[in-house]
């Protein structure tokens, strides 16, 4: 059970390493406003929030079981 969560978290780590680095960032590095917010700025905070939520869900599962 604990090993499962460790694996999930390691996978998360690598997934977000990719999402928060080049070349993925290249896609969002554009002179545009999305919902009135610069595209890259918007992207960073979106991914950031996603990571927080996903990590929160993964570690929360533990307490139930």
């Amino acid at each position: 059970m604990s090993d499962d969560r460790s694996s999930q978290l390691i996978i998360l780590f690598f997934a977000f390493v990719v999402l928060l680095n080049y070349p993925v960032l290249q896609i969002f590095d554009r002179k545009e406003l999305w919902f009135g917010i610069p595209a890259l700025y918007f992207y960073f905070f979106f991914i950031w929030l996603t990571l927080i939520v996903v990590v929160g869900l993964v570690v929360r599962k533990k307490r139930k079981s």
Binding site: S6, F13, F16, P38, Y41, F44, W48, L51, V55
Partner: peptide, 20 residues
């Protein structure tokens, strides 16, 4: 520019590994 965020995204990135 936005590079200031790197200083906070680095620790954020490591957070999942804190568990281990």
């Amino acid at each position: 520019g936005l590079s200031f965020l790197g200083v906070y995204l680095g620790p954020t990135l490591l957070a999942p590994l804190w568990y281990m």
